[in-house]
Simulated scan of single mutants.
Amino acid sequence: MRENIPPPGLLAQARLLAAPAVGASVVRGLEEITGHPVEQGFPGTPPEEPFICVGATLPQTLRDGPLVWFHSVNAGTDALLSAGPWPPGVLLTRTVGRMGERIAQYVLAWVLADCQSVPEFAAQHARAEWRRLPSELVSGQTAVIYGTGRIGSAVACLLRACGIRTVGVGRGSRAAPAGFDRVVGAGDDAGPLASARWVVSTLPLTPATAGFFGADRFAGMGGATFINVGRGATVDMRALEAGLHSGAVGGAVLDVLPEEPAAPGDRGWRLPRTVITSHSAGITADADILTDFAACWEALAAGRVPGTAVDVGRGY
């Protein structure tokens, strides 16, 4: 990845382009960080001089120009990488910011709601029904978290603080990152899945993770609640539906779906014991974009690989 790092001299000369949808506060912040004027909007033809782009998408016309660095305002970069071959030698960085905290709070909220029967009480309220329901303690139970990067680790830290045992599933068995009691490889997840109370996915979408949660994994859950805050296309929705009907999956909370937004007739709305939210677990704030862009700018000025640089071969 180091070969993709533009030299500081090139950064100083490069033009700075921001997508039309980038907000005014972000544009002002980019100018303060770089000392460069920001050209709002992507031109129909690429500049002749080296340039930097900030945005969510990269038009093909700009991919063919002397682009040196693209900073994504989103955490996920699958849409960027699936739109066509990534330009050779171009640095790609992404925005994470405090998304890990936001997603961790979202997961914890649904974990607690699960244990306190919040959906059931809400349904009883709508029927004006008074009926006591037992609660369940989270402490001592197990959450299996797929993805052990910054977001997965933030989820694990918050759940572990509540006394939940946290098992991470990563690309290979290794030392456990912050928040995890242990980490196993994807090929060794059958045991943890069977004993989990919650299964949380923070997986990005890559060729290796498309349809990752299929019939075998859902059938191997022992009644766990499945929470997806990663990417919708990592889930085979028919397999999830079968798992919910069989009881192998006790319930589901889906912040992401393979096709978004979900139309009123989408099968997902009719899944039993399932709640769908509108891809809102980790909405990126303007401050997140500026914080991560500034960190990248500082790293590049020092000749270092930014912490949010994307390995385009792996897809994250």
Score class of each variant (00 low, 15 high):
P6Q: 12
I33Y: 06
A215W: 00
S278C: 14
A21W: 10
R94P: 01
C53V: 14
T202D: 03
R165Q: 12
D216Y: 02
V249P: 05
W86M: 10
N4V: 06
L254G: 03
V68M: 13
Q116M: 13
Q40L: 14
A122V: 14
I283F: 08
G84W: 11
T308M: 06
L257T: 09
R231G: 00
W297A: 09
A301E: 11
L244T: 03
E136P: 00
A19Y: 05
L81K: 03
T148E: 01
M1P: 06
T45L: 13
G307I: 02
F293K: 13
V90K: 10
G222C: 05
L62N: 09
T284M: 02
L158P: 00
A113T: 06
P47D: 10
A190I: 03
W297E: 09
R197T: 15
G268I: 13
L159Y: 09
L300I: 08
E31N: 05
V253K: 03
V73L: 08
L300G: 08
A113E: 13
P177S: 12
A186W: 06
W198A: 10
L108N: 07
A263E: 11
S195R: 15
W86N: 10
A128C: 10
F218W: 06
R131G: 06
V144C: 04
V73R: 06
G163N: 06
V184L: 10
A233Y: 00
P50A: 04
V305F: 01
A18N: 14
T284G: 05
A154Y: 02
R231V: 01
G9V: 07
V305N: 03
G163S: 07
I5M: 13
T234E: 01
Q60G: 14
V138N: 02
L91D: 05
A126N: 10
A263V: 08
E259C: 10
G247W: 07
R238Y: 01
D181E: 13
G282M: 00
P272R: 14
F42D: 03
V312K: 08
L300E: 06
P37Q: 13
L30C: 04
A24Y: 03
G251D: 09
T57H: 12
V38P: 06
V26E: 05
S117N: 15
A24S: 13
Q141C: 12
V38D: 01
G187L: 09
